[in-house]
Amino acid sequence: MIRILLADDETMIRAGVGAILQSDPSLQVVAEAGDGRQAVELALRHRPDVALLDIRMPRLDGLAAAAELRRVAPDTAVVMLTTFGEDDYIARALEVGASGFLLKSGDPRELIAGIHAVAEGAAYLSPKVAQRVIAEIAGGRMAKGARARDRVEALTERERQVLALLGAGLSNAEIATRMHIVEGTVKAYVSAILTRLDVRNRVQAAIIAYEAGLVA
């Protein structure tokens, strides 16, 4: 069972999103918050697997709440859910450590798929958001590629193999199966990779993998 914290200042939105989540018997909303500060407090109390946060909320907006959650509840994966698809929001969400970014205008199936993906240790961007990120990466790929390759050089060969699979979107369990190692070892590799690359989350590491040419 994947335990979820749902935070949005609009009651109707929470009800609609909650109904979508309830359609999957493996998902359970364990707490609901109407603002970012309450979301952080409830996350500390309930320790959900995933926090689904709206970006624009009172007291503490979703981006600030995401940054706080990464600090005080690092085991809770954060997914941003918003009606706003501007590049600035996408970039800021990734910078503060969000593992997923979904648009409220997207297909409900994307919401469920995204929750499952981040709960399994992977990252998930809605297709429209992914297009924006890829376009941004491709725009300055040559210069960024050189910098990314320099950063990847600091990794061991085994860590580069894990990074390549992480960049391809595989979860820890899938990487473990592919490399014939236990999932706990994969988690240790991922932790070491994030530290060596000086990045906050798997999304940022995946971008470096792409820029360095480890992922087609």
Rank of each mutant, 00 (worst) to 15 (best):
A93C: 09
L125Q: 04
A206F: 14
K128W: 02
S191L: 00
A148D: 13
R3F: 01
V129Q: 00
P48Q: 08
E32Q: 04
S105T: 15
V79F: 10
G169Q: 12
S105P: 03
L102H: 05
R196T: 14
Q131C: 09
A93F: 11
A64F: 09
E95Q: 14
H116N: 10
L42H: 10
R200C: 02
I137E: 04
M1S: 14
G114E: 02
K104M: 05
M57E: 08
A7W: 14
A113G: 00
G106E: 09
G62N: 06
I181G: 09
L165N: 05
V152F: 08
G114Y: 12
L111R: 11
E157K: 15
T195G: 03
D61I: 02
E41I: 01
R109H: 06
I2Y: 06
S126H: 03
A65S: 05
Y124E: 00
L60Q: 03
V215S: 11
I181D: 00
A206M: 06
A188Y: 12
A164M: 09
L111A: 07
L214K: 15
M142Q: 10
D107Q: 07
L63D: 05
K104A: 07
R70I: 13
A164E: 12
R149I: 13
A192M: 06
N201R: 14
V17E: 04
L63V: 09
Q161T: 01
E68W: 14
R132C: 03
L6K: 00
A67D: 01
V30R: 09
A176P: 15
L214F: 11
L155G: 03
A123W: 13
V50W: 12
D87N: 02
A138S: 13
L214E: 12
A209S: 12
V182N: 11
A188N: 01
L53D: 02
D150P: 06
S105V: 14
L42T: 00
V50P: 00
R196S: 10
